[in-house]
Structures are given as structure tokens and as C-alpha cells.
Design a protein around this nucleic acid. Structure first.
Lengths: 217, 217
DNA sequence: CCTCGTTGATTGAGCGCTCGTTCATAACGA
DNA sequence: TCGTTATGAACGAGCGCTCAATCAACGAGG
């Protein structure tokens, strides 16, 4: 029985405020450890220790170790979404909004490198039924780019050569951010973050400014 | 002490042919299980069992469970490289070669979906010093695209707007393939493999046909 | 002001079990 | 028979999780 499936608290603790606090502490401790050593190599005792209470207490606020992973994934996604959302103040044109959004999104990805990697590594360790729940969070970010692209298409500042292009390009942009994190060993040798942003933005915008097809010269 | 760091065999077995055979069996069994249950949740006994010998025998041909992971990663990368390489018969122009290469590469990625995911998930579980070794394998595939792009640039069939573009676009193409695997839950809802290939190829080639910068209309 | 029972929260030793690894022994082949 | 290879019971470290015991805070009763 997983946390997101039940409405009430899985413990005997009465003070719901405490539950929130403790779970925050658990997540905070777990994120650090999972990034450092991975989910499987981190012990529940370590998590409790870093959160400054005992394993007994830990298990008052969760039901299984996998619950912690679920809480962590949820936290990371909501943190990502929050940061990206507050970074995107819609500019006047869809095109400018997109430029803006890509810039801020890639910077957020840079800041949250380790968290993004964590998601990639450990999502598979979630119990089957939570996975789809976590994936839904993921797709909200892609959705944001889809919205921006649609706006640009409608106000005429972005041109699409293919009618299915919006979905695809939105995914491509999302992955651009992840790519910066999981290929950092290569990419940081060749580019600074600023260069990376500039170049990738240029590629995306060039596509969205295309005047014709791709006939060879 | 890991396998790739030592020249000789980590066991007492004398017949080197047998070592190769057994290791092939181990890898074959492990790949299946790792894909299914992940590295940590797969036991050495299961691997031995599926390879049709006992744990004792297993440990005659490896020194630790992590050795198996290393062998598996190496196998997957070499398999990928082999398949991609044999799929790319250089056409007359760099541009046609690229088209060809993207097509075949994406199809290989589709066939090896689970293997690619496995690499993403478990590379981090490798002991620190083997990681860089495994990453080097990864970068050979990107290197192939760099070569093709360079050829196209030289023979004039591909145009680059930025002098650093080759590296970046090569990485982008490589990731396009991975993206098809780790976002398949989203992408396969919207596109067939053929559509995906066609659209992404079109995006890449459009960029490489650009006649001017990205000035807004 | 003190006492003591109650209640919610915390503790950590300990349970049951799994897993990676080893090694004495058996089986095999020449 | 002797060298090589295979076996699987045994080992012991370590893990997730439980629960009887403990603690701290508080308020009613004397």
C-alpha cells in the first residue's frame, strides 16, 4: 500500500503538521543520500540518522523504504515544475516566451543536475503502480512547452513545418535539459552552460523560423 | 580488482576458450534478468541458474557481482556499435550518409530499447573506475556521427551555421535515439517509429540546410 | 504546588531473512 | 590416476522492519 493511494496517514501519529514536517525531513535526508549512493545502497538507518531521528521514528511516517523513493520523486518533480513555472513570465510574443522559457529551463536543469539523474536512475525501482503516477508529473513539463509553442504558432511568431511538430519539439526541448545533465562529462568539456543554451536555442528557433522545406541545394 | 584492469583471467580455469564461453553465457543470462528486475534485485544465484550452472561455477569466471554488470555494459555497447556500424554503408554524399545513418541508428535503438535503458539505470552502480571506461564506449557512437557530419561539411552537402555545431549536433542525434527509448511511453502514443524517424530526420536536415541565421520575420 | 495517570511521540535492540561469497568435496576427462 | 572443472551447503554480514519500553508534556485531583 503506497502513500499516494491512501488519503489518511499510515501511522498512529495524530498531529498532521508533524507528519508534514517529518516527511520533509525524510525527503531532504534521502535526496542527499540517494544522489550520493543510490537508492539500493542507502539504508533506512542512514536516512533516519541524517534526519536526526531513529529508525523507529522513521517508520512512524512511512510504511516502506519504497515510500521514501516515491516521496523523493514527487518532491523533485514538484520542485522542478515550481522553479520552471516561476521562471517563465510570459513575454509579449510566443517566440520571446519560448526563448525565455528555454533559457530558464536549461538553467534549472543545470542546478538540478543530480536530481534529474536520480529520477532517471531510480524511477524503475518504484513499485509498478506508482510509476505511471510519477510519469504524469514528468509530462507536465513537456506540456508547458507545448503550450508555449501553440501560442507562438497562433500569434504567428513561430512557424511549424509539420502539423505534428509541436509535440515532438516540446519533447525535444525537455530532453535538451536532461541531456545537459546526463552527458555533462562530454558536454562540459566542449561548452559552457551559456554556450550550450545559446547554441541549442539557436537550433530550435532556426527550425521554428523555417521558410520552406528541406530540399537539398 | 575489476576485470578490465587485469590482463589475465581472474580464476583458476586453464582453458581460455571455456572462459569466453562461460562469460558469454553469464552475460546473456544477466542481460535478461537485469532488464527485467534491475541489477540490485537480481541475485547471483538467479544468474547462475539461468545460465544453467551453479553459483560455485559462476564465481570461477568472475570475481564479484559488479564484474557481471561491467561485462553486461561492455557487451551492450559493443553490440550497439557493431549494429550501427554495419548499418552505415557510406553513401556518395555526406548528406545521404547522414540520412542513412540516422535511420539505421534509430532503428537499432528501437530494437535495443531495453538495453539502452539498462545502461542509463545501472551505469552508476559500476565501481567508480570502470565508469569512465564505459563512457568511452558511449562516446564512440557520437564520434561516428561527428565523422559523418564532418564529411558532409567538407563535400558541401551539409551546411553548419556555427563552427561548434558538429559536436553539438552529433550529441543531439545520439540522444534522439535514447529519447525514443526512455520516453517511449509518451512518444509511442503520438508517433510510430517510422514517423518519429521521418520527423526527427527532417528537423536535423533542415538545420543543416539553413541558408541564413535565425532572424525573426 | 505537587503528584500521578494519560497520551502521543520516540527509541534502538532484536528478529527474520536474504544475499554475496567461499571452499571442501565430487565429478569428469584424458 | 591426476589435473581440471563443477557443485551447493555453509557462512556471516547486513538489511528492512517491528515492538516493548521509555520519555516528555500536560492537566485533573488532592
Amino acid at each position: 500500500m503506497l502513500i499516494h493511494q491512501q488519503k489518511d496517514i499510515p501511522t498512529l501519529i495524530k498531529d498532521t503538521g508533524l507528519v508534514e514536517t517529518r516527511r520533509r525531513q525524510i525527503v531532504q535526508a534521502a535526496v542527499d543520500l540517494f544522489i550520493q549512493k543510490g537508492f539500493h545502497k542507502t539504508t533506512t538507518r542512514e536516512i533516519a540518522g541524517r534526519a536526526n531521528f531513529s529508525i523507529g521514528t522513521l517508520y512512524e511516517y512511512i510504511q516502506s523504504k519504497e515510500d521514501i523513493l516515491y516521496l523523493v520523486c514527487e518532491f523533485i518533480h514538484s520542485e522542478m515544475e515550481k522553479q520552471v513555472k516561476e521562471a517563465i513570465k510570459p513575454a509579449d510574443t510566443g517566440r520571446d516566451t519560448l526563448k525565455n522559457a528555454i533559457d530558464r529551463y536549461l538553467r534549472v536543469c543545470d542546478l538540478m543536475q543530480d536530481h534529474i539523474l536520480l529520477i532517471y536512475r531510480e524511477t524503475a525501482s518504484l513499485p509498478g503502480d506508482s510509476i505511471s503516477y510519477v510519469l504524469r508529473n514528468e509530462s507536465r513539463i513537456t506540456g508547458m512547452f507545448e503550450d508555449i509553442l501553440t501560442r507562438g504558432k497562433d500569434d504567428g511568431t513561430l512557424k511549424l513545418r509539420h502539423h505534428r511538430g509541436i509535440t515532438l519539439i516540446a519533447h525535444n526541448i525537455t530532453v535538451l535539459g536532461h541531456m545537459w545533465t546526463f552527458r555533462r562529462w562530454f558536454l562540459k568539456k566542449a561548452f559552457t552552460l551559456d554556450e550550450y543554451i545559446e547554441l541549442q536555442t539557436s537550433l530550435v528557433l532556426n527550425e521554428l523560423s523555417s521558410h520552406n522545406g528541406d530540399g537539398p541545394p
